[in-house]
Structures are given as structure tokens and as C-alpha cells.
């Protein structure tokens, strides 16, 4: 027998009895960051390969979600900080050793880039539209023009914005190159953020980076599939998603195998997912509902069965979200001592 106890009643909030310094904010951000990274990746990829019209949803419509997801994710990150008013300290230094530091800098670059990307496409998607909410209309016509019939017309009020827009439209391809690199860094970063902590054995595996990137790309493909009204585009993204799900299942099995072949603390850590506390949550939400069921539905669709696209798409997004929550929670249970 061997029993370890802390007898001086250490009960530091958020540390004891089980570490839970990161609550819902971090996993939510990891999900939103991965989703945004995936959306920007596909938009950039099809721009570089010159298929902007063929994959209109991926290049022009779905990316609208990216800045929204990034901003919501940043808000979640801000809520996670215990000293939120000091967040700017992140941008007074570059610490290459700290994944959180270069993650912050990547986000700082990706957020404005994604907004620019969306805004230059808005004119094309919504040249003019009726706006029923007077407050929003008043906000909009502060920057864009009002048409004669009372609609809002997507035309900038100021000349310098019009010039900037023209310049950006010309630079689409170089912008896409920057975006594809940043999107990949952002996607990998959501995994590296966790895997850099060797004190939490469940996270401490280098496979987490590629795994979270794949999962992020998969949630993005599902979103594009869901939004697309074009049959061809939908089929392509359904196939891409099927491939990504396969890779993800492969990476998850490698995660489990690698941990089982690891040190004692890693074996104990992965047992949380294959017999321990998080087994039911992990297998139902992530593996079955989040990966296997949507994969089956997508295969059925390829064989011309009628499957409402919302079902597999929603399940993939759900699985992605749950995967982040379970990994964040379970990781904090795993430790070296006591």
C-alpha cells in the first residue's frame, strides 16, 4: 500500500482538490479558434488555386463566420484572464518559448486579416440590402452609403476606404498566402497550447497539434457543407470532411496507443478515456456522435441516400466542441504527484 495525503489542509481555490484553473473559456476558445482556422484555410486554399467561383461558399460566404468566431473566442480568452485589464502585456513582449505568446501574436494578425477578407467580399454578396432594425441601420450608414430607396448600399462613404478596398481586392492571392500560413499556425496552436504543459500527462503529447488542426479543419468543412447551396460544392466538402474524420480517428487511436505505451503517469492519464471518469462522455460525444455517425451519414449520402445536411454538420461541430471540453477537463485531472 502507498497512500499520499496533504495533511496541512491545503485548499487553494482552483487548485485543490483537483486542478480546474481553466474552465469553459479555454475549450470554447480552442473550438472557435480551430473553426476559424479551418474556414480561413479553405477560403485561402481555393483562392490560391483559382477556384473562387466554383467554391463560392468556401471562399466568400463561410469566412464571414471566421472573424465572428475569433472575436467570440478572444472574449472567452479575456474572461479566462484573472487580470483582464492587463491583457495588453501579451503584446509588449514576444516569448517564443511560450505557445500562448505566439498564439496571442497569431491571433493579433489573423483577426484583422479575416475582417479585411470578409469585408471586401461583402459588397459582392450583399450589394444592397434592406435593414429593418433602425439602430443597426444607423450604425451601418455611418460607414456605408444609403441607396435612394432606403436600402443600405455596400459602398464606403470615404474615399480612402474605397481605395483600400480596391488595393486589397488586387492583392487577394498574396493575402490568401498569408492567411493559409496563419490559419495553419492558429489551428496547430490550439493543440500545442495544451501539449506544451508536461505537468499534465494527458496533454503532453505532440500528436495533439495535428489532431486539433484536423478537428478544426473538419468542423470548418462541416460548416461550409452546411452553408453551401451548391450541390457540387457540398459533395466535395462532404468528401473532404469524410477524409478528415478518418484522419482524426486515426490520430485519436494513435494518441491512445502512444499513451498506453508511455510512462506510468501517461497510462493513468489515458485510462480516463478508456475506462475511467471521462470514458462515457468521450466515446458518446466525440467518437460516436461526433465522428462515426456523421461519417456513416456522409457515406450514405455519397451513395445517393437523402440525408439532411444539417444533421452530420451539427454532429461534427458538436463533437469538435465536446472534444475540446473533455480534453481540457480530463487533462487537468492528470498529474504527477498525490
Amino acid at each position: 500500500m502507498r497512500e499520499e495525503l496533504i495533511t496541512s489542509s491545503r485548499m487553494n481555490p482552483h487548485i485543490d482538490p483537483v486542478l480546474h484553473i481553466w474552465e469553459w473559456q479555454i475549450p470554447l476558445y480552442l473550438f472557435l479558434g480551430g473553426l476559424a482556422a479551418g474556414l480561413l484555410f479553405f477560403a485561402a486554399y481555393y483562392t490560391i488555386s483559382g477556384k473562387t467561383e466554383k467554391y463560392r461558399t468556401a471562399v466568400k460566404i463561410a469566412p464571414i463566420i471566421a472573424p465572428i468566431a475569433i472575436i467570440l473566442g478572444l472574449m472567452a480568452l479575456l474572461l479566462d484572464l484573472k487580470h483582464p485589464a492587463y491583457f495588453w502585456q501579451l503584446y509588449t513582449t514576444i516569448r517564443l518559448e511560450s505557445p500562448m505568446s505566439w498564439g496571442a501574436w497569431t491571433l493579433g494578425a489573423v483577426a484583422p486579416l479575416s475582417i479585411v477578407w470578409v469585408v471586401v467580399n461583402l459588397k459582392e454578396i450583399f450589394p444592397a440590402f434592406g435593414c429593418k432594425v433602425p439602430f443597426i441601420k444607423r450604425l451601418l450608414i455611418m460607414v456605408i452609403k444609403e441607396a435612394d430607396n432606403g436600402d443600405v448600399k455596400w459602398d464606403w462613404k470615404w474615399e480612402f476606404l474605397q481605395k483600400f478596398e480596391k488595393f486589397v481586392i488586387k492583392q487577394r492571392v498574396p493575402m490568401a498566402w498569408a492567411m493559409i500560413v496563419l490559419a495553419l499556425i492558429l489551428g496547430v496552436y490550439t493543440g500545442i497550447l495544451l501539449s506544451a504543459f508536461n505537468a499534465r500527462p494527458l496533454w503532453n503529447t505532440s500528436i495533439l497539434g495535428p489532431l486539433f488542426l484536423t478537428s478544426g479543419l473538419s468542423t470548418a468543412a462541416a460548416t461550409i457543407m452546411w452553408l453551401s447551396k451548391d450541390h457540387h460544392e457540398r459533395t466535395i466538402f462532404s468528401k473532404i470532411d469524410l477524409m478528415l474524420i478518418t484522419i482524426e480517428l486515426f490520430l485519436i487511436s494513435h494518441l491512445i496507443m502512444g499513451m498506453l505505451a508511455g510512462s506510468e503517469v501517461q497510462i493513468q492519464a489515458v485510462e480516463l478515456l478508456i475506462g475511467g471518469e471521462f470514458t462515457v462522455a468521450f466515446w458518446t460525444n466525440v467518437i460516436v456522435l461526433g465522428l462515426v455517425v456523421p461519417a456513416i451519414l456522409e457515406i450514405l449520402e455519397l451513395f445517393k441516400f437523402k440525408v439532411p445536411v444539417a444533421v452530420p454538420a451539427f454532429l461534427i461541430l458538436w463533437g469538435g466542441l465536446m472534444f475540446r471540453f473533455i480534453m481540457t477537463d480530463a487533462g487537468q485531472v492528470t498529474r504527477y504527484l498525490y
Binding site: 481555490p13 484573472k82 505537468a199 487537468q332
Partner: peptide, 26 residues
């Protein structure tokens, strides 16, 4: 304390759980 934003990264990274967040946020 003046440079700490209270992100929790150091707390997650300590295998001894020796750190905690001060009620003042660092």
C-alpha cells in the same frame, strides 16, 4: 504581479501544483 495577466499557463505547467491565483488576479 504588474506583468501577470492571470492566464493560468504557469499554474497548468507546474507538476507540483505550487502556484495559485491571488485574489487580486495574479
Amino acid at each position: 504581479p504588474e506583468e501577470c495577466i492571470g492566464c493560468g499557463a504557469c499554474i497548468e505547467s507546474c507538476p507540483y501544483d505550487a502556484r495559485f491565483t491571488h485574489p487580486d488576479g495574479y
